[in-house]
């Protein structure tokens, strides 16, 4: 019984070893493959476009000519080669250097809310204003007063309009 089990274990050893060799060689092959197929500049730039280094403010990383920024781009290339995703790479830079490396504040709500509210307040004020301005006129005309005549535009335009009417 015991012998038998030992034998079985031994029997498994060979395929396991073969499997191990296979896996290792596959990994090696993958590594070689990856080296051949380094991420292209375009792939790097696509991510770099949305990043800003803390020194060259207002210049996106993909076009920044400084040496430091070149090194950052190489870092992106390396991480891409390691198989990291765009999000992971951006997150790496955020962890290292803070949220300012991103092209937009991470808290979108805060950044968009204020201008949106201000604009809506403007819309509200304007329309309330319109209603207030127009109401008195409506009341006036309802009470039998003369409808406000359209204000004549300047003379030339009026003549022009007349000319056009004659043409018809």
């Amino acid at each position: 019984m015991l012998n038998n089990r030992k034998l079985r274990v031994a029997n498994y050893k060979l395929p396991l070893a073969i499997l191990a060799v296979l896996i290792v060689s596959l990994l090696f092959a993958a590594a070689v493959f990856a080296q051949d197929d380094m991420p292209t500049d375009d792939e790097v730039n696509k991510i770099a476009k949305d990043l800003y280094c803390p020194v060259c403010e207002s210049t996106p990383l993909d076009v920044c000519p400084t040496e430091a920024c070149r090194q950052w781009r190489e870092l992106i290339r390396q991480q891409l080669a390691e198989g990291k995703s765009e999000e992971e790479i951006k997150q790496y830079f955020v962890t290292q250097y803070g949220a300012r490396v991103l092209s937009e504040p991470p808290n979108r709500l805060a950044s968009y809310l204020v201008p949106a509210l201000a604009f809506l307040a403007g819309v509200f004020l304007l329309f309330r204003g319109f209603r207030m301005w127009i109401k008195p006129m409506a009341v006036e005309s309802a009470s039998g007063e003369k409808e406000a005549a359209p204000i004549p535009q300047d003379d030339y335009i009026r003549r022009m309009e007349e000319e056009l009417k004659k043409r018809k």
Binding site: D50, P54, G98, R100, V101, S103, E104, P105, S111, Y112
Partner: peptide, 14 residues
Amino acid sequence: GQKVTVGPPFYERA
């Protein structure tokens, strides 16, 4: 206390 960048995507969208 957080430093942020407001870049083109914000302005373009808004």
